[in-house]
Simulated assay, not measured.
Amino acid sequence: MFAPQVHEYLRTFFHETNCEIESDEGYMLTVQLTIDIDKKIMNRPFYWQYIETTGSPPNPARLTLITDRSKIDNPFMGEIIHFGSRRLNQIFKATKELGAFVQMYEKVQQAENGNRSTLTPYLCVNYKISYYCDQTKEKMYSLGINLVNGNIHDDFHESVCNLNLTNEPTENIYCLPYIIKPHRGLERLDEMIQSIVQNDDHSWAQEAKMRWEKEQEVLDYFYEGVEEKPESYEIEKKALEERFNPRIKVEIINGGLFYLKS
């Protein structure tokens, strides 16, 4: 997720959550948060507890977020935000809570012959794959499956971003019933994401194990000749395992059922 993608994501998030975007430079956003969004992403529960207990006037935060630090001279103009940063992860979490699942319909023009337009159901799931060792790498995937013919599309979120979508179907459309049930569609998307993980380059894991072995050799050197290792040795050994042991985590960020024109 590069800087322009992060910026577009933030712009969409704040627009959809009714936060006022006071300025948008393309690489820096200044936003007046609503009370609800402040509570979700600013991590100041004691402030809101005080406000609600005393009945004092609320003052939700005003944020300036820098998505591309290379385009500014003063890094203290705002908070630098990027993929993997704590603030963006808080916003991802808020997005998951607010819109874990949506059902949307493409808004289409009335056909000239008066016939209703046909919309096809798609199940979309947005995944985050995290690769952990002493370093962390994250990847985002948006997959969509056609619930009529079973075709799977990647970058699905990108394909629907510019469509005119609505929460309610209009009168001039006919929604095809799905042949593949959504739970089965989810199973197929999960199988696809597992295949992506399995076929990915896992040299990072081997490299992490090599660094782990070197650190273990250093630890063993300091305790060389000690027959009964003290508790501190076991604690440090366990810490090395937690730090270097390669692991992969797959999460579903959110998803939705989309009825789109074929």
Rank of each mutant, 00 (worst) to 15 (best):
H183T: 05
V218C: 02
W212E: 11
E22M: 15
Q135K: 14
A239N: 10
A111K: 15
A3P: 15
K229I: 07
R62W: 03
C133T: 15
E25M: 14
Y50H: 13
R184E: 12
Q194M: 13
M42E: 06
D68A: 08
V226G: 03
Y141R: 11
R243G: 01
P75K: 02
G114M: 10
L189W: 01
W204E: 07
E234V: 00
E207P: 01
P121L: 13
V218G: 01
L147F: 08
H7R: 06
E224P: 00
C161G: 01
I152S: 11
Y122T: 07
E251N: 14
F101Y: 14
L123R: 12
F258Y: 15
E16K: 09
V31L: 09
Q90G: 00
P75R: 03
F101G: 05
S130A: 14
K93H: 13
D134E: 15
P121C: 13
G255K: 01
K128A: 11
I196V: 15
S142D: 09
I193W: 02
Q5C: 01
A94Y: 07
E231Q: 08
V197K: 06
E242N: 15
E227N: 14
Q194V: 08
Y50S: 05
C19Q: 05
V197N: 00
L63G: 08
I80H: 04
G84E: 03
T166Q: 15
I81F: 04
E191K: 04
C175Q: 12
C133R: 10
K39I: 05
N149C: 11
A239I: 05
D201I: 03
Y105D: 07
I180P: 00
L98G: 08
F244W: 14
S70L: 06
E217G: 06
E97M: 13
A3D: 14
Q135P: 00
R44G: 05
Q49S: 14
G55Q: 11
M140N: 09
G99I: 04
G78R: 09
V250A: 03
S56W: 06
Y105F: 15
L165E: 11
D220C: 02
C124W: 06
E224T: 13
V197Y: 03
E227K: 14
T30S: 15
G144L: 01
N167H: 07
E241M: 10
